[in-house]
Simulated assay, not measured.
Amino acid sequence: MNTSILVFLAITVLVAIFTIIINNKIIFKKNQVDQAYGSIEIYLKKRFDLLPNLAAMVKKYMEHEKEILLKVTELRSLVESAIDQKEKIQASNELTKILGGLSITLENYPELKADKQFLHLQYEVSEMEDQISAARRAFNAAVVQYNNQIQMFPSSLIAGIRKDEKKLLLEIPISDQKEVNLNQLLNS
Rank of each mutant, 00 (worst) to 15 (best):
S175Q: 14
K60A: 12
S188V: 11
F48K: 12
A114K: 15
K71N: 02
I17E: 02
V143W: 14
D84I: 03
K116S: 15
V180D: 11
G100N: 14
N108A: 11
D130G: 11
Y37D: 10
I174M: 08
N187E: 10
I22N: 06
I22T: 04
G100E: 12
S133H: 06
M152L: 15
I42P: 01
I68Q: 06
I22F: 03
A134F: 08
L170A: 09
I21Q: 05
A141W: 08
R76M: 01
L106H: 05
K88W: 00
S133Y: 06
A55R: 09
M1C: 02
V180T: 09
V144T: 07
I21M: 12
Q149L: 05
I22S: 05
L44M: 13
K71E: 04
R136T: 02
K29P: 01
N181E: 07
S77H: 09
N108Q: 13
G100R: 15
I20A: 13
L70M: 07
S126I: 10
N147R: 14
I22K: 06
S126P: 08
F139G: 00
N148L: 14
R47N: 06
P173W: 08
V15F: 13
Y123E: 15
Y61W: 15
V180S: 13
S133C: 04
F8I: 05
T96V: 08
Q32P: 00
L112A: 13
T19I: 01
I104T: 12
I11S: 04
L14S: 09
L99I: 11
S39E: 13
I158T: 03
E63S: 11
A142F: 08
N187V: 04
H120V: 06
E124R: 15
I42R: 14
Y123N: 15
L99K: 13
V180W: 11
N147F: 09
P154T: 08
Q90R: 07
N2S: 11
T19Q: 01
A141L: 12
H120M: 13
R162V: 00
A142T: 04
V79F: 02
G38Q: 12
A82L: 01
Y43D: 06
A135C: 03
A36I: 08
I5F: 13
S156W: 02
G100H: 15
T12D: 07
R47A: 01
A55Y: 03
L185N: 04
K46C: 03
V144M: 11
T19D: 00
K166P: 01
S81Y: 00
L106E: 12
K113R: 15
F48S: 09
Q85F: 00
V144G: 04
I27N: 09
K66P: 00
M57W: 03
M1G: 12
L54S: 05
F48L: 08
K178Q: 10
L9N: 03
H64V: 03
L121K: 14
V79I: 09
L185R: 07
E171M: 10
D115A: 10
Q151S: 14
L186Y: 00
V58P: 03
I150R: 07
